[in-house]
């Protein structure tokens, strides 16, 4: 018997994968969305979550960046 699941294959670096696992575990997006962990760079997730996820990532990147230069003299 073969099990078949539809979804989206995500490829990312290991750090981002851990972040996704964290989001999944803590239900930060409101629910679990990881269908299967494949390896350290690949995950299989529900396709309807992608948009929310991308917004969340954008948010995160905003928080961990800092201005490189001063605007005023």
């Amino acid at each position: 018997m073969v099990n078949v699941l539809k979804g989206v294959l995500v490829e990312c670096d290991p750090a981002m994968k851990q972040f996704l696992l964290h989001l999944d575990e803590k239900l930060i997006l409101g629910r679990k969305f990881i269908l299967q962990e494949l390896d350290e760079k690949h995950l299989f997730i529900a396709s309807d979550i992608v948009e929310t996820l991308q917004a969340k990532i954008d948010d995160l990147m905003d928080r961990i960046s800092f201005p490189l230069h001063e605007k005023d003299n």
Binding site: M1, V2, N3, V4, L5, G7, V8, D58
Partner: peptide, 29 residues
């Protein structure tokens, strides 16, 4: 470089629609 990095940081993921097959009974299958 920085402009490119700023772009790349938006693309840390690649999403590809796909289908998973697992729980095969035999290696040959």
């Amino acid at each position: 470089d920085q402009i490119k990095l700023w772009e790349n940081e938006r693309n840390r993921f690649s999403f590809i629609d796909g289908v998973v097959y697992n729980q095969f009974l035999s290696e040959a299958d």
